[in-house]
Nucleic acid binder design. Structure first.
Length: 302
DNA sequence: GTCCAGGACTCGC
DNA sequence: GCGAGTCATGGA
């Protein structure tokens, strides 16, 4: 094995190709680059940019760290990948309940080994969630790309530009008008800058939120912030704070997936959305993520 | 032109 | 506490 390489061993409930399929869902994704079954991206490790790539390996995931690849950089990348792909999760209980559940069965069989792909950076998660409110995912990707290319740090490697997500400190110093040229709606710009200031001032941290205890306490804290409603709070719980049970019940994509899988001629009402999830308690974030994935794969099939 | 997208806020009651 | 109107952009 080369100097900058390491292998992260994974369980049978992890499929590199399934997660790669999810990561390749948008050509406008700007936080990593895909080619030949490999994912390359830059992250911040203790203030320094580190470029790395991951690919499938018979024993798990092969990680290659670019450049000097100090022990600190390798450890930081390993931590990141572990969090990004939720590698510490034992999915057996979820798959057992999925096999028993008529709504989830096809999704868990078809996408076995998929993880709730995370967004380890708290600020990035908030921005992505706010941008995604009420607009199509494809347009949200366009807005995110403009935002990242304008305010993020760029790293050139092998003719490809990689970006670090803009820091909360950088965005905290902006005025909403600075985002107008990117076609980010004025109100969303206010939300984003407000969150950036909370994070930059140390008033909003991942550790601080997790210390609140359960999902309900965290949701209560988050929805007190301007621009954060129940959907966004649960989205952040799912993608960044790693709750396996977060449930963005108002999600339109979830509604469409339930309509499809349950064979309904209309979208479910909110009480129905809650009722569907009753048997999924403990795993509602995983159920939601699999249903999103299933809806996308069905759409691609047509 | 109308409707819908991975919602949230404000206002009136 | 709850329903209706508003916000902004882009694709079908």
């Amino acid at each position: 094995m080369e100097n900058g390489q390491l292998i992260i061993r994974t369980s049978n409930d992890f499929s590199f190709s399934e997660n790669l399929q999810y990561l390749s869902r948008s050509a406008d994704e700007c936080m990593f680059h895909l080619r030949d079954g490999r994912v390359t991206r830059a992250i911040d490790v203790e203030g320094e940019p580190v470029l790395f790539r991951i690919e499938g390996h018979p024993d798990g995931i092969l990680v290659t760290v670019d450049g000097e690849a100090t022990e600190g950089a390798k450890a930081g990348v390993e931590r990141f990948v572990h969090d990004w792909l939720d590698l510490g999760r034992n999915l057996e209980p979820f798959y057992e309940l999925g096999e028993r559940d008529p709504i989830l069965r096809d999704a868990v069989r078809l996408h076995h080994g998929l993880r709730v792909v995370g967004i380890p950076d708290l600020f990035e998660t908030f921005v992505w969630a706010i941008l995604g409110q009420q607009i199509t995912v494809s347009f949200a990707y366009v807005l995110k790309r403009r935002f990242v290319e304008t305010f993020g740090r760029a790293i050139e490697a092998d003719g490809v530009t990689h970006y670090l997500f803009p820091s909360a400190e950088r965005v905290a110093g902006l005025e909403p008008e600075a985002l107008r040229g990117l076609k980010i709606p004025a109100r969303k710009s206010e939300y984003i800058i407000g969150i950036a200031r909370l994070i930059a001032d140390g008033d909003l941290t991942r550790e601080g939120l997790l210390a609140l205890g359960g999902d309900r306490a965290i949701e209560h804290r988050l929805t007190a912030i301007r621009g954060i409603g129940p959907w966004t709070a649960n989205y952040v719980l799912m993608r960044c704070l790693r709750s396996p049970d977060a449930y963005p019940a108002a999600d339109v994509g979830l509604h469409n997936a339930l309509k499809l899988v349950a064979g309904m001629d209309r979208k479910p009402t909110l009480p129905e959305v809650e009722a569907f999830a009753e048997p999924w308690k403990g795993w509602r974030a995983y159920a939601t993520f699999y249903l999103w994935r299933y809806l996308n794969s069905e759409a691609e099939r047509v």
